[in-house]
Design a protein around this nucleic acid. Structure first.
Lengths: 338, 338
DNA sequence: CTGTTAGCGCGTTCAC
DNA sequence: GTGAACGCGCTAACAG
């Protein structure tokens, strides 16, 4: 396989000259230039990206790490859209994407250490932020460019994009209240997740705003999967008096909840109302179509990636912390209380 | 950031020795060894993977390229499970995964060229194979290790894992026939995809086996998305006399079809029967639960990755071509014809 | 056992 | 404008 030396020999010039014409780093005389270009074509020469990285100390690669607890990605229901956004944007800037999942067995930070200290990537994107998130501490310590999908400790200054989950849930619950519901259940996420708290706050805020009492037996905590929603729903339906409406924390949970409700003979969007969160592709095509809180997931992916690349390039971010407002999408899974 | 030289200085040994203790390439005396290890710890030294790659001509990275036509990954409904399988297996072998999507705008092969000639990765996984697939030709020409999820031209010898789509569809259609259906529609995929043909063959084979006539107005071709299934279903329901059962080529299509049927006032699993293909997570949790042909997607991901890594390591594959048998999973979306 | 040295392929001064 | 030489951080071959 041809390297820069071969091209130089073939073109009858020196290595330096080849490098210059390839990278447009110094003007080269037309004739010489053409000779080089021709040699490049003839030999089908492509610069060795590894050697380039070694020299330039830049890999042109970013890393996305999914915190995974199970042997599947189901909980990351927004993944395909987020990925699409990240990939489109990174390709647009000629960056590659290294995808990893932290596994249950090995210590989570070890994977980052390998990436960061091993100079495997120029920057990282993380999701599912927690309070006192050790990944953030690590990146900050190491001065590694990164952006997070989600907030963490308020006193920390780091770049992130997040959705105002509190406002989103607030909207959803208020909508349910407007429909006449008084006993409204809430399906939360694992409490270590920051977004879990924000969404719970939204639930509290909406109840308070409307002067409704808080009943802890109407609140569950579980994974953002269908299984999670299914089990949570079973629990909520056993409460007496049982809720007539449920605010969930993810569309997948909502689908699981719908299943549990159907199995109990309840008609969703009739006997019981359910609101999702995310607005994944499926939501609008479900039966009944899911009323949900929309997150612009694709766009978030684009933003995250764009911010990270700016960071890597040493450019200043116009906004270091971005909080997007989600939007209530009314479809068919909710009904006026009867 | 510390490099091998710093460690050597700190430990009072030469860089060669440091390299040896790190890589266990040559036995080193206990005392020296310990001194080195201590220095490594003190400086929090991690070998620079780029430099390593340059030297070893191995990147320990594999690449998965998704052929994407749209700005999202919806058609790759099996993606999250396939990815999970690939990631688990690659991590298990300490390989990283570089994820790319070919975009509509740029020529598809250019992305591979950059990967292959630029020595960016040690091997590739491709999906959605076609006839005369130019990616396969390229990898073969370049002698680049790769495995495909799907077959291509029969005369080509390359490693792949595939599912016997013909047998799968055959099973599904036979099942529908056994339920008494006589007018059975088939939703195919874009015809350039190899799996599209195999599945269509299964449809033909089943009809023939049972002596049922083929009616081309009952066959559609479209994307493996909900939208694709939705539109296909609308078309099929307009045919006179309309089909009482539909065999689809993907679960997502089936869900879209179910939506279209519901909108027409048809009850799925009652008035009309629908069979999916894939058995994604959602299938069993849908309402009604989807009868489908199961592909072991996670396992396929593991196998693909494992084969590729064996190839990269120069090991012999026990099986170069693997065709898995799919399995009919009977759930609630089909009923006896009435 | 340990140290020295020559590349891996490329970008980049600095002379010419 | 162009070319020679050095160095990025590491491994491997060879000497000691």
């Amino acid at each position: 396989m041809a390297n820069i030396k071969d091209v130089a020999r073939q073109a009858g010039v020196s290595i330096g000259t080849v490098s210059h014409v390839i990278n447009n780093t110094v003007p080269v005389r037309g004739v010489t230039r053409d000779r080089v270009l021709e040699a490049v074509k003839e030999l089908d020469y492509h610069p060795n990206s590894v050697a380039r990285s070694l020299q330039s100390r830049r890999t042109n690669t970013i890393s996305l790490v999914l915190p995974t607890t199970e042997r599947n990605l189901e909980e990351h229901s927004y993944l395909s859209e987020l990925l699409a956004g990240i990939m489109d944007e990174s390709r647009h800037h000629s960056f590659d994407l290294l995808l990893s999942a932290s596994c249950p067995e090995t210590e989570e930070l070890s994977i980052y250490r390998r990436m960061v200290r091993g100079k495997r990537v120029d920057g990282c994107i993380i999701t599912c932020t927690k309070e006192n998130d050790e990944r953030i501490v690590y990146f900050l310590e190491e001065d590694m460019p990164f952006v997070a999908f989600g907030r963490s400790n308020e006193e920390w200054d780091f770049p992130y994009v997040d959705v105002d989950g509190k406002a989103g849930v607030h909207q959803g619950v208020r909508y349910l209240i407007e429909l006449g519901h008084r006993r409204i259940g809430f399906m939360g996420l694992p409490s270590e997740l920051m977004c879990s708290r924000h969404r719970l706050e939204g639930y509290h805020a909406a109840l308070e705003e409307e002067g409704l009492p808080f009943d802890s037996s109407l609140v569950t905590e579980g994974k953002a999967s269908q299984a999670g929603g299914y089990h949570a729903m079973k629990k909520l339906l056993d409460v007496e008096p049982s809720p007539t409406a449920i605010m969930t924390s993810s569309d997948l949970m909502a689908l699981g909840a719908m299943k549990a409700a159907s199995e109990k003979g309840l008609s969703v969007g009739g006997d019981i109302s359910i609101v999702g969160f995310d607005d994944i592709q499926l939501a609008s095509n479900y039966h009944p179509p899911l009323t949900t809180i929309r997150q612009p997931t694709y766009k978030i992916g684009v933003m995250l990636c764009h911010m990270l690349i700016q960071l890597i390039r040493g450019e200043k971010l116009s906004e270091r912390q971005i909080i997007l407002q989600p939007e209530l999408i009314v479809r068919g899974s909710c009904a006026r209380k009867r």
